[in-house]
Amino acid sequence: MRYTRKPTSLRDWYVSRSRPPAELLGADLVKLLDEHDRLREAANDARRRAADLADPANDTRAEKADRDAATAAARAGKPVPAPTAVPQLAEDRAAAQREAEANNAALARVVAELNTARRAEAEKRWPAESERRAKAQANIEKLAEKLAEAVTDEVREQAAVDWLRGTAAYSRLGNAQVPAVAFIPALASYKLSPRDVLTSPVAVIRAAATAALTAEEF
């Protein structure tokens, strides 16, 4: 089965782990996705910077720096300077907040454009999709049949040699069987032996070729 799931957030829908590779998408969409990645990283960096600057420890350090500068000036007989660290911290916080808001707004706009571009590309490709899928399925089934035939031929060849050597009686398919644990390793936890739940390798190949392309939501 090709298991599918509904999107929970269109913003997360476009992150690299949740989208197809670039070679499967149109150039306009890929260009927007590149911009999306850049803005998402910038927005995350800006949010982290704003959060770091909001730490109250920064206020303590800035206030201490201004007090130390005032104390040093007084001891040197110089005019007490105006505070600089506290105003600079406030300025840095405001700049970080503006940067975060600007990147978030830009990212939201790109996501909106991505929604439009994605729908446009889907509408462009969908009319021919049914025929494309049918052709792909037919080609995969042909390849699966060729693989199944190759496996069958090799099994029969080995069975013939075994018969010639007197090590095993001959059967048309050479008694070829595949244990379920060979293609579903998780079944090993149920303590299945190699002789449990046997099936034909040809049947496995044919079933996999068709079942893997059947979509089912989870």
Rank of each mutant, 00 (worst) to 15 (best):
L89P: 05
A72Q: 08
R47Q: 14
W13D: 11
A106E: 08
E63H: 08
D28S: 13
D92V: 01
N104S: 10
P56F: 02
S16V: 11
A108M: 01
E91P: 03
A62V: 03
K31H: 10
S9W: 09
G77A: 03
A42T: 10
L107N: 00
G26A: 11
A94Y: 03
A69I: 04
R48E: 15
D12L: 13
K31E: 13
D37K: 01
R40W: 07
A94H: 10
R109L: 11
P83Q: 06
P21L: 08
Y14I: 02
R61L: 12
N58G: 04
E101I: 01
R48A: 15
A22H: 05
A74Q: 11
L10P: 01
R61G: 00
L39E: 01
A102E: 15
A108D: 15
R75S: 08
L24S: 12
R38V: 11
E41D: 14
T84I: 07
V110H: 01
D28K: 09
Q97T: 14
V111I: 15
A51V: 08
D55S: 07
N58L: 08
S9V: 07
A27N: 09
D37G: 02
A73Y: 00
A105N: 08
A46Q: 02
P83A: 12
E91W: 08
D45R: 14
A112F: 05
V111M: 01
L25K: 11
A102R: 14
P21C: 05
A108Q: 11
A108P: 00
E91A: 14
L53T: 03
D68L: 06
L53G: 09
E35Y: 02
P21H: 06
A57G: 15
L39Q: 06
R11A: 12
R67N: 10
L33R: 04
Y14L: 04
N103R: 07
R47W: 09
G77N: 05
A90I: 10
A108F: 03
P81W: 04
G26I: 04
D66A: 05
N58C: 09
A65P: 05
A42I: 06
R75Y: 04
R109N: 14
P56G: 08
R98H: 12
K31S: 13
T84R: 13
V86M: 13
V86N: 04
E99K: 15
E35R: 15
L107I: 00
K64F: 11
E99N: 14
L10M: 15
P87M: 09
R109F: 04
D12R: 12
L107T: 00
A70Y: 02
A43Q: 11
N104Q: 12
A62Y: 03
R98V: 12
P83G: 07
A106F: 01
R49K: 13
A105Q: 10
D45L: 10
Q88M: 11
K78F: 09
A69V: 02
T84N: 07
A57L: 13
D68H: 00
R38W: 05
A82V: 07
E101D: 15
V15K: 09
L10G: 02
L32W: 08
A96R: 02
A50C: 07
K64N: 06
D92T: 00
Q97C: 03
P83S: 09
E63D: 10
V30P: 02
E99A: 15
W13P: 00
P20F: 10
P20N: 09
R11N: 09
A106C: 00
T84L: 11
A50R: 15
L25T: 09
T71W: 10
A42N: 08
A62R: 01
W13H: 15
